[in-house]
């Protein structure tokens, strides 16, 4: 059976918020090392990968591998009903058809139990090859969110160019054009590692959707390489991550 306790429901709320705009149904695979989830969006343009190692949890027990087919909209409704500082315990039997969520207030005076029906999802899992990225940029996640929002006012397509001098985001549309450049800073809040310069184009609305994960981490890592999807990674405390992969736009 599975029993996993998070000290604060806030973390689960943030994770669900980071997933639900991009995927609606997904399987959470639980094993003794933690929880994993991988799904493509409906258009198969992006892939989201979530990993939560056991260190994310106050208590974690998973005797046998269990896959939980989740409707994220339903899960979102359940976690919304709990207070952020409640603890939450997820539990499921070995061949479960439902997930139990038990919320407990700080002073243990209020408990709330929910049963969520599980779905039998037949999902494809994709192999993500190890990639030696040409450019790796780290910046405050709030800065990335702001740039993605500002870019999307101008065009559906955002061009990202990265050189040793910095990273540039450009959008060109009916309104005009926007260019935002960031250079590496001496205080280390923006770091830019470039093996070779790269320019690629991406759909801005996906980038914007990825920034739903901003509350999970102060920092975001952006990795680019020629002919491979963009990687946008938010770490989750010290023991997990959410990674978004976005296929580039290519010349017709």
């Amino acid at each position: 059976m599975l029993e996993a306790r998070l000290g604060e429901t806030q973390l689960l709320k943030k994770i669900v918020d980071a997933l639900k705009e991009i995927i609606s149904l997904s399987t959470l695979d639980c094993s003794e090392t933690g929880m994993q989830l991988q799904s493509m969006d409906n258009s198969h343009v992006s892939l989201v990968s979530l990993s939560l190692q056991t260190g994310c949890f106050e208590k974690y027990r998973c005797d046998r591998n269990v896959s939980l087919g989740l409707d994220l909209k339903s899960l979102s409704k359940v976690v919304k009903s709990a207070s952020g500082d409640d603890s939450v315990t997820l539990s499921a039997a070995d061949k479960a058809d439902k997930l139990l969520l038990s919320f407990e207030s700080d002073n243990k005076s209020r408990t709330a139990d929910y049963e969520l029906k599980l779905l039998n999802l037949d999902q494809d899992h994709l192999g993500i090859p190890d990639t030696n990225y040409a450019c790796t940029v780290q910046m405050p996640s709030s800065e990335f969110a702001r740039i993605c929002r500002d870019m999307s006012m101008f065009s559906e397509t955002v061009v990202i160019s990265c050189t040793k001098q910095g990273i540039k985001f450009s959008a060109n549309g009916d309104l005009g054009s926007a260019n935002i450049k960031l250079a590496e800073t001496s205080k280390g809040d923006i770091t830019i590692d470039v093996e070779e310069p790269i320019t690629q184009s991406f759909a801005g609305r996906y980038l914007n959707t990825f920034t739903r994960a901003t509350p999970l981490s102060d920092r975001v890592k952006i990795c680019l390489a020629p002919e491979v999807p963009l990687l946008v990674e938010y770490s989750i405390e010290d023991y997990g991550y959410i990674r978004y992969y976005l296929a580039p736009k290519v010349d017709d």
Binding site: A247, P248, V250
Partner: peptide, 13 residues
């Protein structure tokens, strides 16, 4: 420009 698919980069396991 044309949007490529993630499945043209990552193959099914």
């Amino acid at each position: 420009m044309q949007q490529s698919s993630i499945t043209s980069f990552f193959k099914q396991k």
